[in-house]
Amino acid sequence: MNAKLDSAPLGVAVRISRIDWDAMSHDEGRRLREFGLMEGIDVTPLHRGSLFSRDPLALSVGRMQVIIRARQAAMIEVAPTAP
């Protein structure tokens, strides 16, 4: 299973299985980690875009909500959370 976070259904918790750190800039990667987005962490996609586009994506990480762009979400592989 190799679903990407940018197409994960809203409202369902998923676990980050792999992040393509090489595909993003150094700063992008660091900010993702500062938001707590790392391998092994559970996240829930919550809101996606507005009338005019599918960007951006809001998701919850622990007790925090963060916003990222779909481009970054596409570099994050997710799997179903362990039951």
Binding site: H47, G49, S50, L51, F52, S53, D55, P56, I67, R69
Partner: peptide
């Protein structure tokens, strides 16, 4: 305000800016 930024990001992205 951050929600407004979220909603506006799509439009802003089209002219090369961000929310």
């Amino acid at each position: 305000m951050t929600r407004a930024a979220f909603l506006m990001d799509g439009i802003m992205a089209k002219v090369g800016l961000s929310g």
